[in-house]
Write a protein that binds this DNA or RNA. Structure first.
Lengths: 236, 236
DNA sequence: GTCTATATCTGGATAGAC
DNA sequence: GTCTATCCAGATATAGAC
């Protein structure tokens, strides 16, 4: 099995998963198409970008509920009436954000190339991949975390299932490592939840990392080292 | 120095810090007195309890912004006009919640008896104390975390300072341990932030702990063990 | 496709009776 | 101390001109 080396650089991730610029807004358009009246992509994509970007800024500053569509209209430069050509309703806008992130995350998490790696390398790939995605789509994660209460019951449920699925994927990797005699611990489930929490810190505590000047690669290494240490792993 | 044994049971904590029932509402009354028109304690305390408890329920279900004072009026059984004898405004209610939690947390964190302990015992006391307080005042923490965006700039700043202060207290304990030759690590600050994050999980991911049936004492042990392991501590 | 103007409603807050 | 009735700002959403 030629599982190693596996390129875990941020550059490689960005190349494998285009989650910024036009490909992203195309993705938004695709999942959101039925709610929109605008069919011309050359007009729709830039406006979608303005609408979503400004929503993130405003929701980040005062919360989504407290942000009015008048605020959004002013920030985007699109009139109130104009906005409704792009969204079905205000709630619909929040729902679209959650849906785009969840579908994207689901795609990235299902990547076969990662799932086939040996435990330590797989862990390394999962941690780096998740942090890079966190970093690139930071506003989306942050929004979904803080505004979850405003989403529909189905969407809240789906978000919770997504986190459990992530935990389960880590746990499976840990257990594979235990079976291979690499890891040992009597609290694997709690350790998996802790690794998930460490990763979430990257978008929840961005202010703290900015303060200390920690870069994403540094933090990725810290999370990997810490997780492996907690699993009792000793490099050969 | 008679620093050990130090009682770290939940019962001992509850006895040392009465954070439930009448003492709690008395505390709320004291910090909130100037905004209230009701002076009779026998009437004020039970109504404060109803108002704050229902606010937590409603804010937890749909978010504080989305909760209307009419909702709150219905839930508490107190009329709209009646509510305004207890709060200055809706925003004022949120501010009061943050202020009560922050003052209480500040009291608990400043306890001298804990600060004088040797590093490992101090760490144990900090972790247990914080988790017990998390557990008892769960709705308050959860509210402050998720509704922080709606607070004033000063209050958001104060909440951030509080977290940095908590990190710093952990870091100081770690450094004392390093100086005593007990601990060793090249990422003390990140480890402190991680311990803080682990503790916050107790109120942020309550659904997950409920699912797995993890009790607060079990989790306290896990957090302590994990932190000590990451600090390279080996019991004598 | 985008705008202005407007319908409609909800929510915070207050006045004043009891 | 508590309630009812009411005021009014500001929000979502839509209709229809251009």
């Amino acid at each position: 099995m030629d599982q190693w080396p596996h390129d875990i650089s941020q550059a490689a991730f960005r190349k494998a998963w285009p989650l910024e610029g036009e490909p992203l807004w195309q993705r938004v358009y695709d999942t959101h198409r039925d709610k929109m009246q605008i069919k011309n992509l050359h007009i729709a994509l830039p406006n979608l970008e303005r609408i979503f970007t400004c929503t993130f800024q405003l929701a980040n500053a005062k919360g989504f509920q407290a942000m009015s569509l008048r605020d959004l209209s002013r920030a985007t430069g699109i009139s109130m009436g104009g906005l409704y050509a792009y969204i079905g309703s205000k709630d619909d806008l929040a729902a679209a954000i959650e849906e785009v992130l969840r579908r994207t995350l689901d795609d990235v998490m299902s990547e076969r190339k990662v799932l086939d790696l040996a435990p330590v390398q797989r862990l390394r790939a999962i941690i780096h991949g998740d942090l890079y995605m966190n970093d690139i789509m930071h506003p989306w994660y942050y929004f979904c975390y803080l505004e979850a209460k405003g989403l529909s019951r189905e969407q809240r449920e789906a978000a919770m299932q997504m986190e459990l699925k992530f935990d389960a994927r880590l746990l499976q990797t840990f257990e594979d490592g235990v079976a291979a005699g690499l890891f040992a611990s009597d609290a694997l489930a709690l350790l998996a939840a802790n690794t998930t929490a460490m990763l979430q810190q990257w978008y929840l505590k961005r202010w703290k990392f900015a303060r200390s000047g920690t870069r994403v690669e540094d933090y990725a290494r810290f999370v990997l080292d810490t997780t492996l240490r907690n699993l009792g792993y000793r490099p050969a």
